[in-house]
Design a protein around this nucleic acid. Structure first.
Lengths: 337, 337
DNA sequence: TTGTATGCGTTATCAC
DNA sequence: GTGATAACGCATACAA
């Protein structure tokens, strides 16, 4: 093995390993000149303190894990981008884990991460329908955890969310104001809190405007493209809604495709509004009215929150919940005439 | 410190640490019953072998690093998704690094990664205009490295790319066949190999069809949304092309926005074709003709290639270059009357 | 300011 | 089949 380590560097410089070590840590007493000498030689020999040895010694990894349900999704990739930026600024590295919306994977990831690999976790959850209690099994040894977007309400940990209820209320109201009175609500899994919160806004807006709620206008979709296509087409033909409010971007796209096929004109026959982080919503045919979440900012906030926790071992009274505001951007998919 | 480790587990079971360790490794001699007993107790006490200690001992991290120029981009997030999947299957974890197209960051990341944090690197490069030689400075200690999409041609390492030249040739030819003869080529940085390769296809297609090449129809764009808007609008007004071939997705979007503003009709006045991994290209107004790269597959191939290298320390004769095929999908942005 | 010695949690070698 | 022990590379308490 010809690889360089602290000992060899020490020998090469006729110094002790402790002195070498000091040259790489900031707060140690060390002669400026020797430090220079060490750093120079280190560069020459391409020496870097071994990450695993340091971390074993220091009992921390300078690494955080990010767990998301999916990756090929504007919202999550933007959020990760935000997390990455903040992490980098703080000298942290990020590990990415994708659950594909499978609860089992989430549990496996979280369990695994408690082996020291990461100092903290930022997660958008996948298993709302399942048992969240596994998170409490770690006791006091549970890694610092921050939720964003999709959360477990029954788990006590900081979270970054958006004002979903309000946005949904306003979105529904917008459709009503545009003349809709048969508004369908498309959701991926209505038992998930995020689906429920958004649905409540929908319900309350209907109530406010004295539009009776019809159970079957709540369309429970799946994660499969093909299945959704069938479900949505059937809903459009059978129920003939004049407005659609979709709780996730993907369902708006599916609605568009369905309308193309069925020759339903958006917005004339059907108005569409959706939660979406798509930057090119204006380029769609027709341009899509969106509730746009500040995805990058959500990621940044989540990361900041986590670092606050990691810095203050004595958790000062930090916010347990950060709420960011989404914006409704009206475009042609909900236009009149 | 109340945290559990191998020693405590050993005490709790009246066994030695070696036996505990064996229970967690596959190939060791150990009594079936004791193994059961250990695993059970481990679960009960929430014990997991410390990752950093193991890795320090074994001199490998079961981690690979992925370096990309940007994240909020369909292509890269899909590619990462592919990498993540394959990595997971192989029991590896992935670290993500975003360079924001800054060469300096790339160098810093790569340097840093040679501290043992990762066993290998998958990268789409950012610094084509700069000195790539830093990669050779590591000598035999350089980590296994696989390029994908954007590569350094002068660095000898395996790579996964697409048939860019051919796709560009066919894309340009498609525009010509649709009646264009003033075709602009939009590129972010034409000195980059990927820009050059794609441009060569463009040039050769023009030549084949005896269309004289006009230097100023090659529009060198930037990474800034605002700058591109100005550049493209000026190009469209001054040069009046009847076709646009964009080397990256983002420039196609910018072209759409510019045309909306300038009231140029696509495809009547201007036909547009672009490299793009956008899944909703059919939903654009008008639907966008794309050269679609198999992004996820590219990621998967890159990961597989890396794992082949990591497995065979004696590098068998593995392919140095994997070429995947892109597909041209004709849509309305290049349609005729 | 620098050096010595010890231990972080694990696994491999070698005994038994 | 199991246990004692050294070593992985580094950082710190303590000594000098």
């Amino acid at each position: 093995m010809d690889s360089i380590n602290i000992k060899k560097l020490a020998e090469a410089l006729n110094l002790s390993t402790s002195t070498i070590s000091r040259a790489f840590r900031d707060n140690s007493d060390i002669n400026g000149a020797t430090k220079e000498r060490i750093l120079a030689k280190a560069k020459e020999l391409n020496y870097q303190p071994n990450h695993y040895a340091s971390n074993l010694r220091e009992q921390k990894s300078k690494t955080i894990a990010v767990i998301v349900p999916e990756l090929a999704n504007n919202y999550f990739s933007q959020a990760i981008h935000g997390i990455e930026r903040v992490a980098r600024e703080n000298g942290y590295h990020i590990l990415i884990y994708v659950t594909d919306d499978e609860y089992k994977k989430e549990v496996t990831f979280i369990r695994h991460l408690h082996n020291g690999r990461a100092d903290g976790i930022i997660m958008s959850v996948s298993g709302e329908a399942n048992d969240h209690n596994y998170l409490n099994k770690f006791g006091s040894k549970r890694l610092p955890l921050v939720f964003f977007d999709r959360i477990y309400e029954d788990i006590d940990t900081p979270r970054v969310i958006t004002n979903d209820y309000n946005s949904s209320f306003l979105a529904t109201e917008h459709l009503i104001e545009q003349g809709c009175n048969r508004i369908a609500y498309l959701v991926v899994n209505k038992s998930l809190s995020i689906g429920k919160t958004r649905m409540q806004g929908y319900l309350d807006a209907l109530a406010k405007h004295q539009i009776p709620f019809e159970e079957n206008l709540v369309i429970d979709c799946s994660n499969s493209y093909e299945e959704n296509s069938i479900i949505i087409k059937e809903a459009l033909t059978q129920l003939k809604p004049d407005g659609v409010f979709t709780s996730v971007e993907r369902l708006a796209f599916a609605t568009y495709y369905a309308c193309y096929d069925l020759e339903i004109n958006i917005p004339k026959d059907l108005k569409v509004i959706s939660f979406s982080s798509l930057e090119i919503a204006p380029l769609l045919n027709p341009s899509l009215t969106t509730i746009t979440q500040p995805a990058t900012e959500i990621g940044e906030e989540a990361a900041k929150l986590l670092f606050t926790i990691l810095d203050n071992h004595a958790d000062k009274n930090l916010p347990n919940e950060v709420v960011l505001v989404s914006k409704i951007i009206k475009r042609n998919s909900t236009a009149n005439g």
